[in-house]
C-alpha cells in the first residue's frame, strides 16, 4: 500500500477540503478531540490510579475498571473520528511530521495494549491477580497514553 498516495488522496478529498477551508469547523473538531482526550485520560487515570491504590481506594477496582472502560471506548471512538478529520486537513504536513508518526505508533501500541493485554487481564477477579502485575499494567497504561497525547501536542510545534 502506498501510504503517501493515501495521504495525498486524503488531503484532496471532500473531508480534506472542508477541514482546510473552514477554520471554525476545524477548531470545533479540535475541541471535540481535546474534550474526548480529557475523557479518555480521565477513564484511564481513574482505572490506573485505582490499581496503584492512589484514588478511589474504597471502591473495588473491578467496578472502577468496568465502569471506566465503557466510556473509554466512547472517548476513543470520538477521538479517532475527529482525528481523521483533523489529519485530512493537513495530510501532507502530517506525512512529513515525525511526531505524527510517533503518535500513530504510540496510539497503535495503546489500542493493542488495552484490548489485547489490559482488558483481558482486568476482566478477571483482581483479588486473584498478583498486585505487582496490576501496578505494572497501570504504569504501562499511563506511560503509553501520556506518550500519545504528548506526541499529539508536539505535532503542532514541529
Amino acid at each position: 500500500m502506498d501510504v503517501m498516495a493515501f495521504f495525498t488522496w486524503l488531503e484532496g478529498s471532500t473531508l480534506g477540503h472542508i477541514a482546510k477551508s473552514y477554520g471554525g469547523v476545524y477548531a470545533m473538531a479540535q475541541t471535540v478531540h481535546l474534550a474526548s482526550m480529557a475523557l479518555l485520560g480521565g477513564t484511564v487515570l481513574i482505572t490506573d490510579l485505582r490499581l496503584l491504590n492512589v484514588a478511589l481506594r474504597d471502591v473495588p477496582s473491578n467496578v472502577v475498571s468496568e465502569g471506566a472502560h465503557k466510556w473509554f471506548k466512547v472517548a476513543l471512538a470520538v477521538i479517532l473520528l475527529s482525528g481523521v478529520f483533523m489529519v485530512a486537513g493537513v495530510a501532507m504536513k502530517a506525512y512529513y511530521n515525525d511526531f505524527y508518526w510517533a503518535k500513530m505508533a504510540a496510539l497503535a501500541t495503546g489500542i493493542l495494549f488495552v484490548f489485547a493485554v489490559k482488558r483481558p487481564l482486568l476482566r478477571k477477579d483482581h483479588s486473584l491477580l498478583p498486585p505487582w502485575l496490576l501496578k505494572l499494567v497501570a504504569i504501562a497504561s499511563i506511560t503509553v497514553w501520556f506518550t500519545v497525547a504528548a506526541c499529539g501536542r508536539w505535532i503542532g510545534f514541529s
Partner: peptide
C-alpha cells in the same frame, strides 16, 4: 513555552478527566 503549553493541554486529562467522570 511548548512544554508549558503541553502541560496545560495534557493536564486536561487530570482536571477535566476527573470532572467529566
Amino acid at each position: 513555552y511548548n512544554w508549558i503549553e503541553t502541560t496545560h493541554v495534557l493536564t486536561l486529562t487530570v482536571f477535566l478527566g476527573m470532572l467529566f467522570v
